[in-house]
């Protein structure tokens, strides 16, 4: 008996290698993806520049502070597009083509296998872009982050990634019930786009939704506050609790969906 952790580590490496090979098959992709990514960030910056040219602050956020939100958004988008969504979209394909059976036949946790199935390596560009945005933001603010703030930001970002992954897994679980959901990623991206802006911009029902139902606030506003060193304790607690809760929920729903799939005989 080998140790399971080591086995999953090796599995992860094998899947990573396959992803890189797959990614390199498409050379036009390789270049275009980089270019497109830079442009996408620009689309977000342009409105920001126009807005702050007219106003010194919006909903209590100054230009440099809003850049933090944009930076975390870019970072998170890289995580989403680079690791989470390609893998989970392949689940939807598996279900449609009926090849999920092959995954379920393998002697490893199905959730692990599908979640690590595909990675797009050049999305690491987003991390770089995020760092540039942070630097620009702090320059505009005329100061730097404290070490504690960076640590806190890392923690809150980790829970943001967990939340993002869990929401995706929930959405993908829906694919077991409604087979055609190719537009899912478009929908998610469209809603997720709202996370480019600090939560304070939104009002009423929209704000409630983005805080509690689809917690965009947890994803970008909270880590930004942490990085700026103005995170209230209750936000930190909320972030950690939210991550634990959505992860547990998504795991339960995923298990139930797989159970349903296998009992229905594909």
């Amino acid at each position: 008996m080998r140790r399971p952790l080591a086995r999953y580590g090796r599995l992860l490496l094998v899947q990573l290698r396959a992803s890189v090979l797959l990614g390199m098959q498409y050379r036009a992709d390789f270049l275009l993806d980089g270019v497109v990514e830079v442009f996408w960030v620009a689309t977000a910056i342009v409105p920001l520049l126009v807005v702050f040219a007219a106003r010194p602050s919006v909903a209590g956020w100054r230009f440099g502070e809003a850049l933090m939100v944009m930076g975390w958004f870019t970072f998170l988008e890289g995580v989403l597009e680079g690791t989470i969504s390609p893998s989970l979209i392949s689940v939807v394909e598996h279900i449609r083509k009926g090849t999920l059976d092959f995954v379920l036949l393998k002697p490893a946790d199905a959730q692990f296998l599908v979640s690590t199935a595909r990675i797009q390596p050049w999305r690491a560009l987003n991390v770089l872009t995020a760092l540039v945005l942070f630097a620009w933001g702090f320059r505009a603010l005329g100061r730097g982050p404290s070490a504690g703030a960076v640590a806190l930001a890392a923690v809150t970002m980790l829970s943001a990634v967990v939340v993002l992954y869990s929401l995706w897994l929930l959405a993908v679980s829906a694919a077991f019930y409604v087979v055609r959901i190719d537009n899912l990623s478009h929908l998610f991206n469209a809603v997720f786009d709202a996370a480019r802006w600090p939560i304070d911009v939104f009002h009423g029902a929209v704000r409630f939704t983005f805080t509690f139902v689809l917690p965009l606030a947890l994803m970008t506003t909270v880590p930004s506050r942490a990085l700026l060193g103005v995170l209230p304790l209750r936000s930190l607690v909320g972030s950690l609790a939210g991550a634990a809760l959505t992860f547990a929920l998504s795991r339960v729903v995923w298990k139930a969906s797989i159970g349903r799939y296998t009992s229905a005989g594909g």
Partner: peptide, 11 residues
């Protein structure tokens, strides 16, 4: 041919 190096070359 298979392999990462070959993939890079084929780009």
């Amino acid at each position: 041919p298979p392999g990462v190096a070959a993939a890079l070359r084929s780009m």
